[in-house]
């Protein structure tokens, strides 16, 4: 793998002035930007390779099924429990604020819109990155460190086709389903707090929600978001695993990078997509 272009040339000792410091700072920035660009280039080429070698994943769907199990089924518990809690907190906080304006009946709207548009896709993706993404990175990284990928290559089996692509598709398929489950459970949590605990009218809770939530603008956009997050997180996870240095530190470092990079990318993509989707409203 490419080593960092070492551009940090020390400013000359006899001229340590403001210019020297500025120059060092600029060089630092330039080196960082170059490294990021090089890495983005790698990820781009890697993504193309993953798609190109996706044939076997669909010809033998059992491979993907296994990965849906590990990425999706095993994330079910953390996703549903977190969804329930987030929904309940939204219910409590939302009620507290709305009741001051005499519009506690709008609680259903608040809970549903927050979850469908933002919290469902974003929080589910963050949890997915730390639960499934890190596991994918660690697994692929360890396969690399123990030469399993090299062994596969020597057996004339392409590791991207056999190991990476099924995990990628497993994650991409699981993520929107997990986000939907998160939102649904969250709305139920809001219902528990709003109707069963606080005592709002069940009918108005649902009808307010239904009149405000739009199928296309809210639900569909949320699903699109979660799909994009699924692609981003899984791609980062498989890339970091495949790119990991084949040592213990290499794998642990890659796992950490998966979680951190995923979180940043999820939030950045969320800003962009929110700006595009909900601009007119």
């Amino acid at each position: 793998m490419a080593t960092e272009p070492q551009t940090a040339i020390e400013p000359k000792a006899d001229r340590p002035g403001v210019l020297g410091t500025l120059r060092a700072a600029l060089e630092h920035l330039g080196g960082w930007v170059l490294r990021v660009l090089i890495r983005l280039g790698y990820i781009g080429r890697f993504a193309v390779a993953v798609v190109r070698f996706s044939g076997p994943s669909f010809a033998r769907f059992g491979l993907v099924m296994r990965e849906i199990y590990f990425a999706g089924v095993l994330s079910l518990v953390i996703i549903s429990v977190s969804g329930l809690f987030v929904g309940m907190v939204l219910g409590l906080q939302g009620y507290d604020t709305l009741v001051r304006y005499g519009s506690a009946n709008a609680l259903g709207t608040l809970v549903a819109l927050s979850l469908l548009r933002e919290l469902g896709p974003v929080v589910a993706a963050l949890l997915f990155a730390s639960r499934a993404g890190s596991a994918i990175t660690a697994e692929i990284g360890l396969m690399k460190a123990t030469e399993q990928l090299a062994a596969m290559e020597m057996m004339a089996v392409e590791p991207i086709a056999r190991v990476v692509a099924p995990r990628f598709w497993g994650g991409v398929i699981s993520m929107p389903l997990l986000a939907a489950i998160f939102s649904a459970v969250g709305i139920f949590g809001g219902y528990v707090v709003g109707v069963l605990i606080v005592g709002l009218d069940s009918g108005s809770f649902w009808s307010q929600m239904q009149s405000a939530v739009d199928l296309r603008d809210d639900l569909l956009n949320g699903v699109i978001k979660s799909f994009v997050f699924g692609v981003a997180v899984t791609l980062i996870a498989v890339f970091e695993g495949y790119d990991a240095a084949p040592t213990a530190e290499g794998v642990s470092g890659a796992t950490t990078r998966t979680v951190v990079t995923s979180a940043l990318v999820i939030l950045a993509l969320d800003v962009v997509m929110t700006a595009l989707m909900f601009r007119g409203i």
Partner: peptide
């Protein structure tokens, strides 16, 4: 479960 959740969101929350 995922499809049920989507159906719930579409029919119950979004109507």
């Amino acid at each position: 479960l995922g499809i049920l959740a989507l159906a719930f969101l579409a029919l119950r929350a979004a109507n």
